[in-house]
Design a protein around this nucleic acid. Sequence first.
DNA 1: CGGCCCCGCGTTTTT
DNA 2: CGCGGGGCCG
Length: 765
Amino acid sequence: MEKYIIMSDFLEQLNPVQREAVLEKDGASLVIAGAGSGKTRVLTYRIAYLLSQGVAPYNILALTFTNKAANEMKERIGKLVGYELAHSLWMGTFHSVFGKILRYECEHIGFPSSYTIYDTTDSKSLVKSIVKQLKLDDKVYKPNTVLSRISMAKNNLITANAYAHSNQVLKDRESKIPEIHRIYQYYAGHCMKSGAMDFDDLLLYTNILLHNNPDVLAKYQDKFKYILVDEYQDTNFAQYMIVKMLSAKYKNICVVGDDAQSIYSFRGAKIENILNFKNDYPDYHLFKLEQNYRSTQNIVCAANFLIKKNENQIPKEVFSENDKGELIKVIPAYTDKEEGYLIANDIFEQIHSKGLKYSDIAILYRTNMQSRIMEESLRKRNMPYKIYGGLSFYQRKEIKDLIAYLRLLVNPKDSEAFKRVINYPVRGIGQTTLSKVEELSNTQGISMWEVISTNMIANLNVNGGTQKKLRSFVELMLKLQQKNEESDAYDTAHFVASETGILKELRNGKTVEDRARHENLEELLNGIRDFVTTNYANEGEQSVNLTDYLENVALLTDQDNEKEEDRNKITMMTIHSSKGLEFPQVYVVGLEEGLFPSKMSIYDQHNLEEERRLFYVAMTRAERRLTLSYARSRYKYGTPENTTPSRFLKDLDPSLLDQVQTKIGSSDTVSSNNRQLSGSLSNTNLNLAASRKLRQMKARVNTEGFKASSPLEIIQGANVEHIQFGKGKVVSIEGEGQNKKATVFFSGYGEKKLLLRFAKLRVVD
DNA sequence: CGGCCCCGCGTTTTT
DNA sequence: CGCGGGGCCG
């Protein structure tokens, strides 16, 4: 009864379509959720509703796209129904959920339960060594080329053996890379021998497990009576099949997605999965969430206008009932450096005139390399920022080294970990010895660890000194393993760091880098301790072992552990990683041909449409204000290259744009710069220039109608008016002259700290 | 065997 | 421009 009351309470927080989607408990549901339409809300309330109807949490499987999304959803569900229930849900990414299941069921697929997960670096290094082993040309068989072939195959559930007997071999021959199938077979063999899986294997082996073991499949079908999948438009074939198999018995499946936001086809995602849902579940219910609660009307309209240029899509009409809001600002710049300068300027002005927090702002870009210039310009302005992606914490050498030790402890067969630590810290075991070990490992079909830890070592053609060094390494590892048997993950990790001499080496290092590395290592150890304590609290008496930690860490991205001190900072990330997020103000930078859209995509209609969807995703991250920018010249590999504005700018409704003049440089060149843009934008439409002029006049009337008072008149207790926030009262004043700031309370917006140099404030009676 | 230096190459996006 | 790999020297 109590639950029923709570339920009816929160059902009121949903609009009619959302509510229907939540209440349609059984059967198949497809929820097409436009950007900002409350998709997460539907998912969380739906799960809460299932729980309130007596469905057990362990009978619900909810698959998300990122760990972060899963954690946030758990948190929100916890608030609705209590954390105990929420904690027992099966919720996470495909990779983490099925990674766990594979550990339970590993015996069926011939892997140890302590299998390790290879990251991309490990995979690359393995491919390199196989290419060498097969004496193939490494100019032809580049790790990235090979890996993307293998990855595509796995995503389409083509095993190494199947690949070797498929017409892929013919295609590869035509592409002048005929030996891919052999590399793939060796790769799979090496992984098996090392007890290791890469990211794609987690999905591939889950499929193999469920497909080849009807009893296991039946068990999980009965376990997961209700299945929910978020971001369904970005699932690949392997993921699609897992969901299809698991839901086959009860058919209680709810998928949520937006075809307009499908941006992961390079990773094998199939937009068709969402388009074909009706074929798999003919009795499905369709729900279309079309009201956008996130953004202003201008932003929603601009995004709609853009995405309409795509041919391939489910028709829908996303609308907003928020205010019209500001126009979309377009900032042209001569160079990439100037672009950074202008963006930093604009952000500075916005923050101080509107009393925004740094965390209200995001800078989004197409490629990670663009972060560098933005970083420099923000640093010059003394504005705090955080960068996601790029080299993550867990990719740093010192971190990977320690983790490699931990991996090797848990799974001594892990050859990539072995190669990483065998001579780190330096113990005089060089390349020659390592090659010999590797060769014997290959010819004998055993792991490198087994070569040196058994009497196979006698067959190694190395001198007595080297053999002694190898033996002492084995001794060390056995000692560490012993420790691991009797300790939790943190104690073991700390023991490893000191016992191997890693900590000491870094502590004695004199360079600043060494000190930073030492700090990173400390941070990693702290992270492990946190992991141990949180999970200890969750799981009860059993202490948390390394296997648990390693599984977690392998699938972690740096978005997943936000540090406290990073909370109020400007966010910089690629558009891809911004999916699902929202910010009051968004800057999309680098709108240039060949960069965005990427030059890899401009010759193919499908790729181009995906780039456009990517732009759609970028625009719809913004709640209140959206700014676009481009440069006329950009450094590439250290040399400047001329660029032209992105074709996507032409895909925008000109009446929603506010083309700004650059503030630096002579007015002459500025206007010629704008003329170039106008020319390139309006070559097909004569009305563009006219409508822009009209719009600019309107905009001018808007701001000019508002006369700001002199900063001297703004005093504590004064009643003031702000162009955006309306009426407010000055709470306090700090600073003088140029730096005079007022803290103003606006009803509806709360307290804002405004720098009077920028903020337009008018004293009212 | 290890460290240093030079050369060549690359950038789309990530679980 | 920055990273990684290969080659050379101590």
